[in-house]
Design a protein around this nucleic acid. Structure first.
Lengths: 345, 345
DNA sequence: CGGATTGGTTCAATCGATTGAATTGCGTTT
DNA sequence: AAACGCAATTCAATCGATTGAACCAATCCG
């Protein structure tokens, strides 16, 4: 098991210097076509493997871009990936990603590691509870030169590029839709206040209902993790109340899936006996029984835009950080319907 | 914007050499505690960032482990990740992953890149259509020294470690279950022959039915991509036949989700008018309406085992490659039930 | 024919951390 | 006082690729 071949080995075989080989392999115009061919040939023969550490050390950049996600258990987040991968691949950049599982420590480790590794930039869907202090942009941080774009979840008080969904608008559409169907007792099933999405959506939910004159009941606000399991038990809890809601708005589709599933056991027909709305409109939303009413978040556009913004920063764009909002749209399917006559107030 | 600080800068400040700083930061026993403290302190002050390229160049190993997935659109595959991350984090190894989207090119690029990067090892859920030629183990490949473990999908004719589910056994359980419920016209909804899982499951399906004396009808075999959309339209197609099946076995849960959803539109009650079985038992399987009968694949155990095998290889284990099979279990929920009397042959 | 041009290649310094061997300093032993 | 042991630090070579400048030879032009 011999040592892995280097430029020098190739150079010796061909009878030139390592410089020539380096230039040849990288298609430098200074090298003649014949030489290039010979070098290529020999490189193949000896099984040459480019050494990124050596190159990275010399050049200072590794040509990679990092993505940090925090909840792979929610397929919604994986939907962002496709659009981004495409963009970076076009730029011959590799995207390396990390699943931090909502752990600030893991997230910080990853960011540090990527800085050490000379990553060109970072797209971050921040872990719940992330503050400005935790970001590369923070003065105290050693990472301040790492270009950064926040995706999907916003963070207050930092000057960074970000691409987020207009959650307030999306939630307004949901509430208006339900009100127009005659619902008045509308409950909330969703996350706490650890992410901007959870905060913004719930805030909008409360504001809209209050403004319409039907402020949400304290018992109608049910907090819990963003999982199907929570959606399931949450709906059961809501419906066990003496005066159950006629409609339930879920923070996310994942929760709504659980809620819709719970109806089966309770003998309720979603869209008839109870209205349920989700948020995100992930792929699976069209495949619940019956299909879920939700708010389409344009993960494709958001991912693409985040990539572009990051690439611009990497190229050295010096403009002030931008905060871009994507407009969502309401997708009415079958889990929402008119309030049944016997439920009407 | 000054250049980022190096060991040398710290050394100058402290009044020692770079060697001392290096040893101090890495907690080498040779360095006194006081010095270690001083170095640490200064490193923090100047905002030192460890340079992985330099270290990697010198040491030849980057301490990272790579994972290549091919279908993030299917949450089943993300279920493997959690168990693996844990294991590697315990070993202070970072896991970098790639979503190759079933593209052999992207997969190959990633593997090459990881070899160039000096990754310690690779766990691969191979892209559909991957052959032994595409793997680091292949003689022709330049990657032959990269420790490799195959996960979930098997590949013929290569000597590599692998951890796979016993698909034949799982499928046998499904078919027996349906036969025992009285089903005789059982259809297949699933992928082609590009992955071992697709082949093995379909093969077992056919064998079991043939052995029982009810070989599947040619019209009862419906091939397509592993998506909910295919499951949806596939079920509609099957039920549109003059003599529709009384039960449908799906290659995977994702397809089954689509199939179950299609029932709603067709006015069929899964588990009553038609039996549907999935495979994988992903989290969402318990939340369809009604809950899906499926085969539990132990992604947690498989992920853990694959990590352990890879770590053993990295440590230099010289034993012959092993092929480990995990035993699945049937999870009967409500989408399967006795064949209805009017359908009985 | 001399000088300039061009194309092709080599020179040599450089990136920053690592590590086995060598060195220094200091107290202890004989 | 010489010899020794030990701890703490430094020396110096090394990893492999990159790249601006220098070099050389052949060709071209006035």
């Amino acid at each position: 098991m011999t040592r892995r071949p280097t430029l020098k080995h190739i150079a010796e075989r061909v009878g030139v210097t390592a410089s020539t080989v380096s230039l040849a392999l990288r298609d430098d115009a200074r090298i003649s076509t014949t030489m290039r061919e010979r070098v290529r040939q020999v490189a193949l023969e000896v099984g040459y493997i480019y050494n990124r550490h050596a190159a990275g050390l010399r050049r200072g950049d590794s040509g990679t871009v990092a993505l940090c996600l925090n909840d792979l258990g929610n397929p919604f987040f994986t939907e962002f990936i496709a659009a981004m991968e495409q963009r970076f691949r076009d730029q011959e950049r590799m995207m390396l990603f990390c699943h931090a599982q909502e752990s600030l420590t893991v997230q910080a480790d990853f960011m540090r590691r990527m800085a050490e590794h000379g990553a060109s930039g970072l797209i971050l869907i921040p872990a719940a509870g992330t503050t400005g202090e935790d970001l590369p942009g923070a003065e105290a941080s050693h990472l301040r030169h790492l270009p950064l774009v926040l995706l999907s979840r916003d963070i207050d008080g930092v000057e960074v590029d970000r691409v987020i969904n207009d959650d307030a608008r999306g939630m307004a559409m949901v509430v208006e839709h339900l009100l127009s169907l005659g619902h008045r007792r509308i409950a909330w099933l969703g996350g706490g206040n650890k992410t901007s999405t959870a905060r913004d959506r719930e805030q909008a939910f409360r504001t809209m209902l209050t403004r319409a004159g039907y402020p949400p009941d304290q018992n109608g606000i049910c907090h819990g993790p963003t999982t199907m399991a929570f959606g399931h038990q949450g709906l059961e809890a809501l419906m066990a109340q003496p005066r159950p809601p006629t409609a339930v708005v879920c923070f996310s589709d994942l929760i709504a899936f659980g809620a819709v599933a719970a109806c089966h056991g309770l003998g309720l027909r979603p869209g008839v006996d109870i209205s349920i709305a989700g948020f995100d409109d992930m792929n699976a939303a069209a495949y619940t029984t019956p299909p879920l009413t939700s708010v389409r978040v344009r993960t494709d556009l958001m991912g693409a835009r985040a990539s572009e913004m990051l690439l611009a920063r990497i190229r050295g764009d010096q403009e002030a950080p931008r905060r871009e909002m994507m407009t969502p749209e309401l997708v009415v399917r079958e889990t929402t319907g008119p309030v049944s006559s016997r439920d009407r107030d």
